[in-house]
């Protein structure tokens, strides 16, 4: 047992402690310096008159007041119609996207197609994902015209990029046991997919589709900005007319519709990935 060296309270006469050497943190220091420099350079070089920033909060509050103090509900009918247009674009884009991406994600997954095809598809997916959907819409609109169809096709192309990637990752992530079992029983590749892969990957796929639909709902409203129709189109117009109370109403519509769709889709996704609730299994 240790002998105590009780120090009388109040005195500072304590034995000197041997402190360990402080570890050098050059890595953290370098990272801090690099980030700081990049941020400072960006702030310093960007073309913004920072003096304006002082009046900005006041301005924004004023506009928020104009928009939301008394939203103008006169145009609600047309707003809902245009919202339906946007949601349609999102739906069609998602459906076309999933129909195309489903076979492609199998071809891009290890074990279902030759390596070169895999590489090409994966490159294609990542190229598509790098390009914003609005640019895809601009690129194809000279062929498809300024119609909601253009919007839907742009969303479909973009959906192929994300759904394809998530898809092959999910396929490669399934337990190989059932696949081997089907192969061992003499199953062909389609049979392997149907009985070895699909039962495992199906919940993931359905949940990816729903999630991509949520993304497409948001994206469809911005496609209106280039004139393909939908709520974004209407919002740009009224912003340009500076009819703020109508803009406020339109933003509220976007928020409510998007949040409702997210809520429904999110609930479905949870249901699918977690399975039915116990109470329901009891019945």
């Amino acid at each position: 047992m240790t002998t105590l060296t009780p120090t009388p309270p109040g005195t500072r006469a304590r034995p000197a402690l041997v402190l360990p050497a402080k570890p050098s943190s050059w890595r953290r220091l370098t990272a801090t310096i690099v980030v700081t420099v990049i941020v400072i350079v960006a702030f310093w070089s960007v073309d913004i008159t920072w003096a304006r920033l002082g009046s900005l909060p006041g301005e924004i509050v004023r506009y928020l007041w104009l928009m939301f103090a008394a939203p103008n509900w006169d145009k609600i009918g047309e707003a809902l119609l245009q919202t339906w247009r946007s949601v349609e674009m999102a739906w069609v884009g998602t459906v076309i996207g999933l129909v195309i991406s489903l076979p492609l994600s199998f071809l891009a997954a290890r074990g279902f197609a030759p390596a070169p095809a895999r590489g090409v598809l994966r490159l294609l997916f990542s190229v598509i994902r790098a390009v914003p959907e609005i640019i895809i819409a601009i690129a194809i609109l000279s062929v498809t015209g300024l119609t909601p169809l253009t919007g839907a096709l742009a969303l479909a192309v973009n959906s192929v990029g994300t759904l394809g990637k998530w898809g092959y990752e999910a396929i490669e992530g399934v337990d190989p046991g059932p696949i081997e079992a089907v192969r061992a029983a003499g199953g062909s590749t389609p049979e392997v997919i149907r009985w070895g892969v699909w039962p495992q990957a199906m919940p993931d796929f359905v949940s990816f589709w729903l999630y991509r639909f949520e993304i497409n709902v948001r994206a469809s409203s911005i496609l209106g900005l280039i004139g393909v129709g939908g709520i974004g189109d209407m919002l740009t117009s009224y912003t340009q007319y500076r009819e703020w109370s109508t803009v406020g109403m339109l933003l509220l519509v976007v928020v409510v519709v998007t949040m409702s769709i997210d809520a429904v889709s999110g609930a479905l996704r949870r249901r699918i990935t977690e399975g039915a609730s116990v109470r329901e299994l009891d019945r």
Partner: peptide, 28 residues
């Protein structure tokens, strides 16, 4: 935040451009 998240960035930008004028600021 859920409400903020449900409006896409480009819609914010188009409204903000009308508020504070053209340039990098509304984008940021």
């Amino acid at each position: 935040l859920n409400a903020v998240r449900s409006i896409p960035d480009l819609l914010y930008a188009s409204v903000l451009v009308a508020m504070v004028g053209v340039g990098a600021l509304p984008g940021i």
